[in-house]
């Protein structure tokens, strides 16, 4: 077992590796241990995540300057920035942004709460699973978009409908990931809890919740994306404010630059919220050692 886990250490003494080496005089081909390829990833590139997007903007700028890109198809980066500045000066952008962010936040909070509670109930009891898991799987099979007509009939076209749609979309990944992470908690830890005579409350607190946390965070990262996604849909279907409404209006008037501003805003919101989630994810899961470390 040890011999297999350290192949390099035993190579000079056993197996065909030593036969091969015997044919090559060590002076001719010295073994360079420093250049051996490592299986783990190397050190992280500083600000590596920004390199790709920066490259895109460079290409976009060059294309605009050189006249390769028609401004009606895609306005130059600086004219998009100019439009954004104007919109901010008029106070429109902030207003739409606040409305959208508030909707997404509400939907996210409700969806995450409901999804987690359902996952816990269904993960911790057979009866809970029998009652909850089926309906959630059915909901999962129906695209959120397809539910909107029904939700409009039930909740009207106000904020309630929008928040409900977002919450319903968010609930699914939270439920699925938390539930599966909870169910895959090593049974040896359950045994341990039993031998340590933990009470049920302590068992949930010390074993179940921390054990399910990796899944919860994975679900949360999906959930944030889903929240923005369904926000776009509900705002474009029926709204009188919000970024989606702004984009839809701009489309009617052929204002590509405003459409782009809206899209950039969505991208920033998505990235920022994902960043926030992964920040908390790393902090709460600092006990793990993975390939990325």
């Amino acid at each position: 077992m040890n011999a297999f886990s350290h192949p390099a250490a035993v190579a000079p003494t056993i197996g065909y590796a030593s036969d091969e080496r015997a044919l090559i005089p060590p002076a001719v081909k010295p073994r360079k241990t420093g250049t051996r390829r490592r299986l783990a990833l190397g050190r992280a590139i500083p600000f590596g995540a920004l390199i790709g997007p920066a490259l895109l903007i460079v290409v976009w700028s060059i294309g605009s300057v050189a006249g390769l890109i028609d401004p009606r198809t895609l306005p130059a980066p600086w004219s998009v920035v100019g439009t954004a500045v104007d919109l901010i000066a008029e106070g429109k952008l902030q207003g739409h942004l606040m409305t959208s962010a508030w909707r997404a936040a509400q939907g996210l909070v409700f969806g995450v709460l409901i999804g987690s509670v359902l996952a816990l109930i269904s993960g911790l009891s057979r009866l809970g699973e029998a009652i909850i898991d089926g309906p959630v799987q059915i909901k999962r099979a129906i695209p959120t978009l397809a539910l909107i007509p029904l939700l409009m009939l039930w909740f009207g076209i106000g904020e309630g409908m929008k928040v409900t749609t977002i919450a319903l979309a968010v609930l699914i990944p939270i439920y699925i990931q938390t539930h599966s992470s909870l169910r895959s908690i090593d049974s040896r830890y359950v045994e341990l809890a039993q031998t340590l005579r933990m009470g049920y409350g302590e068992f949930i607190r010390e074993v179940i919740l921390p054990g399910a946390l990796p899944g919860f965070f994975l679900g949360l990262r999906f959930a944030v994306t889903y929240a923005w996604l369904s926000l776009v849909v509900v705002e474009q279907v029926n709204a009188t404010s919000g970024i989606g409404y702004m984009i839809d209006l701009a489309r009617n008037y052929g204002q590509t630059d405003i459409v782009i501003v809206g899209l950039v805003l969505y991208a920033l919101l998505g990235l920022a919220s994902d960043g926030i989630v992964s920040f908390f994810q790393e902090r709460s899961l600092s006990w793990r050692r993975t390939l990325a470390d």
Partner: peptide, 25 residues
């Protein structure tokens, strides 16, 4: 009674002292 298993069976998400104190009210 206490059990020691072949694997140390420490909860990976608990620091060493917390692991020792588990279930000790």
């Amino acid at each position: 009674k206490s059990v020691v298993f072949q694997d140390a069976r420490l909860l990976p998400w608990k620091r060493v002292l917390e692991n020792v104190m588990l279930g000790l009210n």
